[in-house]
Simulated assay, not measured.
Amino acid sequence: MATHLITGAGSGIGAAVARRLHERGDDLLLLARDAGRAKELASLFPGARTLVGDLANPDRLSWALAQQSVPDRLDSLLHIAGVIDLGPIGELTPKTWHSQLNVNLVAPAELTRLLLPQLRISHGQVIFVNSGAGLSANAQWGAYAASKHGLKALADALRQEEKPHGVRVTSVYPGRTAGPMQAKVHQQEGKEYDAARWIDPESVATALLAALDLPRDAQIDDVTVRPGR
């Protein structure tokens, strides 16, 4: 039975991935920002274990994990959590920059650093759910795109560094995907939100699981998923 640590399992793509892995009987370790959220995740995925660690405060992740029981080995680390706040560069405050950079880039880097020993033991896999904004930046998307461009750099460097240890690294770049984050984006853009226009989170989950389940004689470095309609 494979063991996966997942961030962002409470909604959207993260929930779809966690549900699929849970249904096939894999062992899940779900990261929650606080004890209340951990309780919610445990009720959503009976039998799954939870860890508490706030991605918005990456400096505290090492301390947080040290207070809890972490498996000796992990088959995958799935970075799916993310936050977004749109706005023109001329109006973005340091607080807005830091909030997105911390959750979308610094926390994944720190969590990966802390869990690499367990991933190396299993010759496991790190998957970063990035974004189309990690490949191209548009107006109003500067801070979010910067965090996701940084996430691409993190994945690319990690892939080269961990190849000798047998750890695979994959980046998934979804286009606009239905879910709470997309609803927030539309609100910030002043547009009406219609989930049917965008990618179903289950479709992104299918692409992610294809990379995760690929036989060990190959690896998928980058996957781009775009709306089909």
Rank of each mutant, 00 (worst) to 15 (best):
F45Y: 15
Q125H: 13
L78V: 15
W97Y: 10
Q187F: 04
A153V: 11
R226Y: 01
A35F: 08
P117V: 05
A18K: 11
A139M: 06
K184A: 03
Y193A: 09
I80A: 11
D194I: 09
P46A: 01
L65N: 11
G124T: 08
T50M: 14
V129S: 11
G134T: 06
V225F: 02
R168C: 06
T224V: 01
A155S: 12
R73K: 11
G179H: 05
H123C: 08
V103T: 15
D54E: 13
L212E: 13
A146L: 01
V225K: 01
S99R: 09
P46V: 02
G82F: 08
A56L: 05
G132N: 01
D85S: 05
R197P: 06
P174Q: 04
P180R: 02
S203T: 13
S76A: 15
H98F: 10
L151T: 09
A35Y: 07
P174M: 03
A18L: 13
S171G: 08
E161W: 00
E162W: 01
Q188P: 06
S76Q: 11
P164H: 02
A107M: 12
Q187N: 09
L5Q: 08
L101K: 05
L31Y: 13
A137G: 00
G8Q: 04
Q125R: 11
H123E: 09
L41A: 04
S136M: 00
I220T: 10
L214K: 13
P46H: 02
I199D: 01
Q219E: 11
K95L: 10
R37W: 09
R120H: 00
A56G: 12
E91F: 11
A178S: 05
L55Q: 09
A178G: 05
T93N: 06
A15M: 03
D194R: 12
L28K: 12
A18D: 14
G53C: 11
A207N: 13
R24Q: 14
K184D: 02
Q68F: 14
S43Y: 06
E162N: 01
D54A: 12
L29R: 14
L114A: 07
A139P: 00
E189D: 10
L55K: 09
D156L: 10
G150R: 13
V169L: 03
H22C: 13
S147T: 10
P174N: 02
L5E: 14
L151R: 08
R226L: 07
G190D: 08
G179Q: 01
R159G: 07
P94F: 06
L44G: 15
V223G: 02
S136W: 00
A218G: 07
